[in-house]
Structures are given as C-alpha cells and as structure tokens.
Design a protein around this nucleic acid. Structure first.
Length: 568
RNA sequence: GGGCCCGUGGCUUAGUCCGGAUAUAGCACCGGCCUUCUAAGUCGGUGGUCGGGGGUUCAAAUCCCCCCGGGUCCGCCA
C-alpha cells in the first residue's frame, strides 16, 4: 500500500519539478517525522541552479497537482523540504485490503526465481549451542521472508559427514568405556548429548597421547579408501547426532526441505572431476604434494589449498561441488554462515568463477555469540546448549503465566509458556543485525519486556480477546479518525514493503523491528480507544480495525517463526 | 603484520548501502495511569563529544583518509 502512495508522490513530484523548470534524476524522497514522506530535492537543485533551496521548494510546490484517485492528500513546504501526506482513501483501502487478503496480506507476487537457502549445517559432533543457534534462526526467518516475497525456496542442511571429527567420535565409541564418561546432559532420548561426551573425551585423549591421533587417522584413511563397514559406522554416528539436533530445532519450529550429505559429492565423482578441471588451469600448482590455487590475480593473497599432501580433499574443495550442484538446481543460492568462513567463501567463489560459473552465492554472515568468559566451543565444553536455553525460557515463561493467569487449566498454561519461551528465544536472536557480536547473558536472553517477542504476542492476544467478545460485521472505514487509529493503519500499510526490503537486503532484523513497532501502535490504540464500548457503526469499524491488526500481527509473527497466541 | 566486520546515553540497540529538518527504541533510574476490551501494557522525565582526529559538502552517525579498541580469518581443520 505504501508503495502505491510513494509512487504517486514520485510521479506528481516529478511533474512539478519539470513544470517549475528544473531537472532532477533523484527526487530525494525519504521517511520523515514531519510527514508521511518528504523530499529534500530542493537542496540538490540549489547547487546546480544557484538559487536558495527554500525558493526552489516553493516554486516546485506551486506546480504540484494532485491527480484524482491518488493516495496523496496534500503537500506542503517547510523551509527547503516538500512534505506529502496520505489521504483517507489510502487509509480506507489499507483496511479493506487487509480484511480481504487476511493471512495473505504482505505476500508479494510470485517470482520466477528459485532459491536454495543453505543454513545451519552444523557439525554432527554434539548438541547445538546458542552460538550455533544463531544460524538456523536467521536462516529459517530468511526462508520465511523470501517465501512471502514470492520466491520458491528450498532450505538445505549440508551435513559434514566425512571429517576428522567424525573419525574422532568413531574412535571414541570404540575405545572409551561409557562408564568413565560424565553423564549426558540429557537423560532421555537426546543422542546428540550422548555423542558429544565421546567427542570431548576423545579430543582430550588425542592431546594427551599421540598414538590416539594415529589411530584416528587410521580410521579416517579407512573411510576415505571406501571401506564399507567404516562408512556404515560413520553414517550411523552422524545420523544419530543429527537426530538429536533436529529434535532441538523442532522445538523452535525449524525444519528443512533437504539434507545434503557432503560425502555424496565424493562418491559420485563430482569432487574428482572438479579437481581435474582446476588442475589444468594456470592457477594450479603442487606444493609438497598438496594441490593449491594461486588466486592473487583475484585479490586473494593466500593460496587456496584443495587437497592435503596425501591427496585427500578438504572441506572447502568438497563445498565447491555442492555449490555447482546448487547452481544446477536453483537461480539464486544463499548461504547463512559464521563470519569465520569469509576467506574460505571468497576462495570458493573465485574457484567457481574459474570453473565458469557466472553467478555468485549470496552470503549472510553473522558474528559469534560468545560467553562473558570467552568464545563457545563444543569440543572444549564451553557452551550454553540451546536445549538448556529453551528449557529455561519455558520455565521463566511458565512462572509469568502462573503469576498472571493462575485460573487457566494446567495444559493451557504449559502451552502458553511453550509459545512464549520459544518466541522469546527466536526474537532475541533475530532482533539484532547479524553482523553484531553478541555476548550471551541469561538475563538479557530471557528478558520478556518490550524489546521481546512476548510484547508482540501479547498485543496479538489482546486483539484476539476483544474479537472473542464480538462478531465482525460490515463496516464503514471512514469512521476511523482518531490519531491512534490512523497511526495504526499507516503502520500496517508498511508491512508488504517491509517484506520486500527484508527479502531484498536479506535482513531479518528489519522484520523484528517492524513487529515491535506495530505491536506498540496497537497497544496505544488498545489503551486509548474503546472498542467494545463504542456505539453502533463506530464499534463495527473499530472491531474491523482490531481484526486487521490481529491479521498483520499474526502475519509478522509467522514471518519470524513465532507462534501468535490467542490468549496469554 | 595483512584482509574483512563491529564501536551510537550506565548496558543493549535502530538509522550507515542511497548524506539532509529536534539521532530510534528497550533495560536501568525518577514520576503518573488498573471500579473501564488481559498492566507481559501505557504516559511523562533524567541521560548522547554517534570510538578519536583530519578531509569532502550548503549539510556528515552516514562518504574519503589516518589512528585507537574489540571480533574474526590468514595453505594442508570443518
């Protein structure tokens, strides 16, 4: 809706600029606290035409003609600025559009592009910790945004099933007596918590005893040589661990369209073919038996090492094969990755270029979540498990529900606590820009105040509460004139534009911020404007407005992968 | 040492790509609002050299250069 208004302003302003005898390619339109949209074009023209900006603004203003059927109510001049305001038609059409489109409000027209979005792709060495949790939450939110923006999205989890780390775990299962290990952090059916015990202990033993290292290498060599029994064991270990990781991800409503196993690209020979091709390029050379690419020509100082001296391929090399496969199956490739992958990714992108792939993967990098005492590490056990965070979030949410709604039946209280706890964790992760570093602190992660999901969920529950006490009828949107009502409608009108820019910039935090602002506008309306106690037609119109707010709040929460509760 | 990212009130953060009108919110602190649709709410107040220094511009948190602090990576880990 807002886009239509903006386009209307654009065309009439362009007309006015020309009628006033100026030429401007950029109309300098922007958001403003003083108007619904404002132009500072007079500044730009001032230097070119040597006139005072105020005078230019006034001249342009005098030529403004608002066409019939436009969403522009009026324009005015404040100093050098030209301001524009929406009219009643804009507000009323917004309400009508939301009412008609319902849960589809905010969905953009279908696009032809097919997207493969890879996210999470954590190593199958143990449970997800809150640092790694940032990846799936950003990734899943982006998938939801892109789907709303009209793209066909295939979400993929790339399984690192053939590394040394797996060999380490396999060694551990074979050689370590489980009775000597600490109890798993989870007793019941969480295999990832079981696996990580072996992983940690095995790593300790490796650093203590070089013989262990040699044995692990032996296992890895057996695997690489294609020994069917070893391959089976690897597969079992990986599947087992991933089962536990998926259980955790299900708790925050994250699922994948496809799991892509790294080893498949080795087995089907595609990694070998890539090596052959790259070997023939002028960038390739052998250094102490290892195949490397010299990428200085592309501005990369460091050689890209493709194989170890024993000929075994490395992670990034195999990732080239995966990317070729992705570009074969999609128009756009997006990866969500930790910032430590930046160099590897630019090497990979360059290798793709050398292999003749024109397109580049778009990459969303995020910074790490560290603990006050330092960086998280699965191997060293310096972590806060995502499972624990989710449990704690549930517990704290339950306490809040108990305090506010002691009357509710137990299963209802637990249900709300689950919805609120999970929402709080997702929102907290996605509300800040991915490139910002986060220091994890329990009090901040589990803050249920205004910056968080419960604030938005609460607004939704309030809307539902009103709607449950009345039924919707035909209404006259022209009755909605209170400033609070107008503000709310304007905010709702932004939603499709928010989807568009979040999808374009791949920035989930835009949606989170919008959600908070929308909830705030609704809460202000809720407090100041009576709905059920309003009379006749006004009541009907306000009920319709509440229904619209409920729809947009539900849609935006859905975009964030957060459940919109009807009661809390 | 080099590359990339971050640095905005006591803490957390928006805005930076595409320069414009009093820099956005939350937490904390101070003071109002529940006989009125769920107060997980709402209204007001205190608090900012936008890391520092130069430069470009009519105009810089935003663009350019230098420096400082933190993160991250830098050939056989993933």
């Amino acid at each position: 809706m807002f886009l239509e208004f903006k386009n209307g302003v654009k065309s009439l302003l362009r007309g006015a600029v020309e009628a006033a005898g100026y030429e401007a390619e950029d109309l300098c339109l922007g958001m403003s606290a003083y108007a619904d949209i404002a132009s500072s074009v007079a500044f730009k023209l001032s230097s070119r035409y040597g006139e005072q900006p105020q005078i230019i603004a006034t001249k342009i203003f005098k030529k403004i003609q608002i066409p019939k059927g436009s969403y522009v109510n009026k324009a005015d001049v404040v100093g050098p600025y030209i301001n524009f305001y929406v009219n009643r038609g804009f507000l009323e059409d917004t309400i009508k559009k939301i009412s008609t489109e319902g849960e589809n409000y905010g969905s953009l027209p279908k696009k032809d592009e097919r997207i493969i979005l890879e996210h999470t792709s954590v190593n199958p060495t143990g449970p997800l910790h809150v640092g790694r949790g940032r990846n799936p939450i950003i990734g899943d939110t982006l998938a939801r945004i892109l789907r709303r923006a009209g793209y066909e999205v295939d979400t993929q989890f790339y399984v690192n099933d053939m590394g040394r780390q797996i060999a380490t775990i396999v060694w551990g299962y074979d050689k370590i007596d489980p009775n000597t290990l600490p109890k798993p952090a989870r007793e019941l059916g969480k295999p990832d918590h079981d696996v990580v015990r072996y992983y940690r202990r095995a790593n300790e033993l490796i650093s203590e005893d070089p013989k262990v290292d040699i044995e692990v290498n032996g296992i890895l060599a057996k695997y690489e040589s294609g020994d069917p029994e070893t391959i089976q064991i690897f597969k079992k270990v990986v599947e087992n661990c991933m089962l536990g990781q998926r259980q955790t991800l299900e708790r925050i409503d994250i699922y994948y369209d496809r799991f892509v196993w790294e080893s498949q690209f080795v087995r089907d020979g595609s990694v070998g073919k890539i090596l052959e091709k790259l070997k023939k390029t002028r960038y390739a050379s052998l250094r102490e038996g290892a195949l490397t690419l010299d990428l200085r020509e592309f501005g990369l100082e460091k050689d890209f090492v493709l194989t170890r001296s024993d000929g075994i391929t490395l992670y990034t090399t195999r990732d080239i094969a995966y990317h070729l496969w992705k570009f074969d199956h999609a128009d756009v490739v997006i990866n969500v990755l930790g910032e430590d992958q930046k160099l590897a990714m630019s090497q990979l992108q360059t290798a793709l270029k050398i292999l003749g792939i024109e397109k580049e993967p778009k990459i969303v990098f995020y910074s790490f979540v560290s603990l006050p005492e330092g960086r998280m590490s699965t191997r060293d056990g310096i972590v806060v498990d995502l499972d624990d965070l989710l449990d704690e979030a549930f517990d704290r949410a339950y306490i809040e529900v108990q305090k506010r709604r002691p009357d509710l039946p137990e299963n209802q209280k637990r249900k709300i606590a689950g919805i609120v706890g999970m929402g709080a964790v997702r929102f907290d992760t996605v509300k800040v820009a991915p490139e910002k570093m986060i220091t994890f602190r329990w009090e901040e992660a589990l803050d249920f105040e205004k910056q968080g999901a419960p604030f938005i969920q609460y607004a939704h529950a309030r809307a539902c509460s009103i709607l449950s006490k009345a039924s919707l009828e035909d209404f006259d949107p022209s009755l909605l004139k209170e400033p609070c009502e107008v503000e709310l409608i304007k905010k709702m009108a932004f939603f499709p534009g928010i989807v568009a820019s979040a999808a374009h910039d791949l920035k989930p935090n835009i949606v989170a911020i919008y959600a908070r602002e929308l909830a705030e506008k609704f809460n202000q309306f809720y407090l100041h404007i009576p709905v059920l106690k309003a009379e006749d037609d006004l009541r009907k119109a306000r009920l319709a407005l509440v229904e619209c707010a409920r729809i947009v709040l539900a849609n935006v929460l859905n975009l964030l992968g957060i459940i919109a509760p009807e009661s809390m």
